[in-house]
Structure formats: C-alpha cells, structure tokens
Write a protein that binds this DNA or RNA. Sequence first.
DNA 1: CACACAACCTGCGAGC
DNA 2: TGCTCGCAGGTTGTGT
Length: 271
Amino acid sequence: MPELPEIEVIKNIILPYLKGYIINYSIVRNIKLKYLIPKEIINISNQKIIDIKRRGRYIIFLLQNNSIIIHLGMTGNLLIINKKNIKIFKHDHIDLIINNNIILRYSDVRRFGFWIWCNKNYKENIFLKKLGLEPLSNEFNKIYLYKITQKKKIPIKVLLMMNEIVVGIGNIYSNESLFISKILPYRKSNTLTFIEIDILIKNIKYILYKSIINGGTSICNYINPYNKKGSFNKFIFVYGRNNKLCKICKTKIVKIIQRNRSTFFCSVCQN
DNA sequence: CACACAACCTGCGAGC
DNA sequence: TGCTCGCAGGTTGTGT
C-alpha cells in the first residue's frame, strides 16, 4: 500500500495509543509474511513501548532493550481496535494486546510486509542502514539532488523511486510530483537543469506534506488505523488516470511502463 | 552502471 | 456463471 505520507499518518495515529504502554502479549494467527514472524515477537510479553519512529516506509517500535521494525509491503494495515470488537478476518496476522484495553492488529492480504526483531540500535539494521535521505529533511535539497542526477543517466521518475537516494517516494508521489513540476518522467536525470531540480524538490515536499495533512491516498487497500480512507485522491492529477483527460489542459493522460512499474503523465503539461 | 525480469502473494475487474 | 489474464502504494535478487 503505502508511501511516506500513509506511513507517517499511521505512525501519528497509533502513537498516543501505544507510547508508554505495555505490550502484554501477542496473538500470531499466520506466521507467514515476507519473512517468518520471529519467535521473539510471537513470544513477546510485558514489553514497554518507549517510542515509535518512522524511517522511510518503516515503522519502528522502540522497546526497553530491543526494537520491532515493521514494513507494510503493498497491503499491510495497522488497526487500533477495541477488545470488545474482536471479529477476526482472513488476513489478520498479528495482534498486540496492550495494557490499555486496545489491540494493535496487523493484517496483510498479499504478505509482502514483514516484522523484524532487532536490538536497540535499529538504525544499524541491514534494511535501514542503506536508506537514503528523508524527503522532508533539510538535507534533501537541490544541491544534493542535482549532484546525484548529474551523475546518473536513468529516467528521473525511476531515480525518485530509488530508496538508496531518497526514501518513501513511490509510484503515486513520483508521478504526481513530476506532473506539477512539468517534467516528463522519462527525461534522463542528467538532462535536468538546476532550476528544474529546485522546482522538483519544492514540489516533492509540498505534495508529501499536503498528502499527510489529507490523511494519505487510498487507491484500493489503504486504510488508516481507524479503518478510514485517506482523502488525497481528489488532488491526484495523473496516477491511475490513463486515457482520462488532464485536469489542466484536457489532453489524454498517457501510461507507459518504466522498470516494470506504470508511469502516468500529460504530454502537453509536462514539456 | 542501466536495465529486464522474476519472485514473494491475493484479490479484483475486464473480457471471453 | 466461470474461466483466464492483467494489474495493484514494494523490495530483493538474478543475469545480460
């Protein structure tokens, strides 16, 4: 499901329900995710949640001596549910029973998500260590991105989705930020000017903030921990709109395939 | 280094 | 109604 805004929304919603509380125990109904759920999580008991962080698309639960690193893959959901309201669905994998009468439930239809048990130093974990910059940080700026785009000759849309360069920009927000920046997705990265990179950086940050404020984007599976959809969909210009008319110039939106992912653009506006 | 492709899974809609 | 096909917010790993 989720790109950075959705993960950020999820983290912000679950934080007050979990921070400072105790995981009494867990119920694991289906051990099979992308990686098997580790025994430390299956057997967890009496662990205080010190804090919850987000890094890229990962959510990290900081415990007293360890941490849990969670990736939602394409269809993972975290839900805050009441103990009384405990209907089980087919793809519910994990319940964390918390000492404040709520349950944090993880469900995942396609099982591309995973939960990892890690020591306290989660930043050194193999998955997190190789991640690039946070797109909403000051370090992710036009100097940084220009330097990288100059060195590479790959399509700019592909580059924006590379986690070792910048994290959390997936298929929706790469398409959308290129549209509002009026840049064609197949432009080779080293042909972009410093001015264009400046515009692109500003629009990436703008669109991510705007999506977070609107609760993220719900295309098919994404729901927040209250089981509600995000409302950023109404601001989408190109993603998933192939053969529909551009909201600005009424030209048909085009779909192409780049690196086996769908890319959408307006050949008139983005030129 | 750039790219193509497969793998991990299930569900849904389109078309026959 | 029921089948097959293609497609889906991600990531990793192979081979050319």
